Simulated assay, not measured.
Amino acid sequence: MKMNVAILSAGTIAILFILALLAGCTGTAPGENVTPNVTTTAPAAGANVLKIATTTSLENTGLLAELERVYERETGMDLQFIAQGTGQALDTARRGDVDLVLVHAPALEKEFEDEGYGIDPRCIAYNYFIIVGPEDDPAKIRNMSAVEAFRTIAIAGMNNTPGVAFVSRGDNSGTHAQEKALWKEAGYNYTTEILDSGAWYVDAGKGMGDTLILADEKKAYTLSDEGTYLSFANRLALVPIISESTELMNRYSAIAVNPAKYPNTNARGAADFINWLISDEGKQLIGDFGKVEFGKPLFVPLYAPECTGPPFNCTCAEPVPTPA
């Protein structure tokens, strides 16, 4: 019995010794060049996952949830939305963290495309920005143009007119970009003459829904997209003061992230989703959204040839090429 144990122990030691020698053969000899095993690209995006950076206004209205419900049911694609201001959404796409964007700031969109990050832009719908404020309209801007209204609010605010205040999103969103454009058209340098010009001007740094709530608390004016205002209206005392002028037109677009910049984006999924948005089915869904709950659609789908001329100047019907 003792001999068997000794033999077994010796055999075990021999096996372990042989395994150690084999392991040593796979090592690197002294002085041998080592090539690191480095992964130079991220793992390929899941074919059934589509990441979309989008505006808070589309989320606040509930349209995103409806698009997600219908598209996922029809295709099995998992839509994953990141709701941010348009500027932040475009920066997220610049980092390659999403496959496409849904945004509403034409000037910022053009920069994104000119830099080579965005391809195949398609405008999908529009509504209007509106200037909302207290029912008693302390700055007396009702029936003015949007530019006249902004000029009047600034003069009243800087002169400490009782009850006059303006709350800005202040978040580099599409709405904030439109606000800055209106200040410029009204004759002001936004950075040097509006920001920090007094307590009348409040820089919220928030999404549209939160900005509306803050403006309501302060009994102040603010600029909002119409869809988000309607979806929050039952919580607000603020009322629309100025709406539906050309200078308040609010265009929404879908733009794919350039796979030449980020090869692992889901380029096919992005193309398919954009083509669905500009299809008759997608446009009808967008055009019907809000009719039952709010008595009017929150967005107006764009059709050719209307989209190709002023004030839209965009492509809304030509299909996006589908990558192989």
Rank of each mutant, 00 (worst) to 15 (best):
L108E: 15
I130H: 07
W200N: 05
T56H: 15
T315Q: 11
L182W: 12
G24D: 10
L302C: 03
R268C: 03
A10T: 10
A10C: 14
L285A: 05
I155P: 01
A186G: 13
L79A: 06
A271D: 02
D137I: 03
Y252Q: 13
E318Q: 07
N33P: 15
V98H: 03
G133W: 11
A267N: 01
A42F: 11
N266I: 02
A107K: 14
L214V: 11
R73M: 10
Q88N: 14
L195D: 08
T12E: 09
L214R: 07
F129D: 05
P305W: 05
V98I: 10
T40L: 15
V132W: 06
V101R: 08
D91M: 14
A93F: 08
L58H: 00
P321Q: 01
D114E: 14
Y188K: 05
Y303C: 07
D91N: 15
I7N: 00
S231A: 15
I141H: 07
A254T: 10
P259W: 00
A14T: 12
K218W: 06
K2F: 10
A215L: 12
A93D: 09
L58M: 10
E115R: 09
A53S: 15
R122N: 01
L19M: 10
A10Y: 08
I274L: 02
K51G: 05
E217I: 05
R151E: 06
A317P: 03
A125E: 11
W276L: 01
R251Q: 14
Y221V: 11
L277C: 11
E318I: 04
D210L: 13
T55H: 02
